[in-house]
């Protein structure tokens, strides 16, 4: 799966995106975040569990308990401030 980052999350992680092989136990968006915190210290530091952020699977905004299904791309970003 490709994980993409935006705005301050992208800046603080110092990466736009990353390719990630997910174990079978990772089933939802929240599971991906938990997995990343486990394997990546920087990620755990920048996005601790209490962080307020939003997520999209293949361009669709989703809740954190949404199953990944066959999505190829997960985007993680702060609450939006357009307009």
């Amino acid at each position: 799966m490709i994980i993409r980052y935006f705005a301050w999350i992208r800046e603080r992680l110092n990466r736009d995106e990353q390719q990630l092989e997910l174990p079978d136990s990772v089933k939802t968006v929240q599971d991906v975040l938990h997995h990343l915190r486990t394997i990546d210290e920087d990620f755990a530091f920048v996005l601790p569990p209490e962080t307020v952020f939003r997520a999209a699977l293949d361009d669709e905004l989703v809740e954190l308990d949404t199953p990944l299904g066959s999505a190829k791309e997960l985007s993680i970003f702060p609450p939006m401030t357009g307009g």
Binding site: F6, A7, W8, A56, P78, M80, T81, G82, G83
Partner: peptide
């Protein structure tokens, strides 16, 4: 405003900062 993926960053005299929702 809340559901389209845009993020504002303001550049001022003291540097740049992300606008909070």
């Amino acid at each position: 405003k809340t559901d389209a993926p845009f993020w504002k960053k303001e550049v001022g005299a003291d540097g740049a900062h992300w606008v909070e929702a």
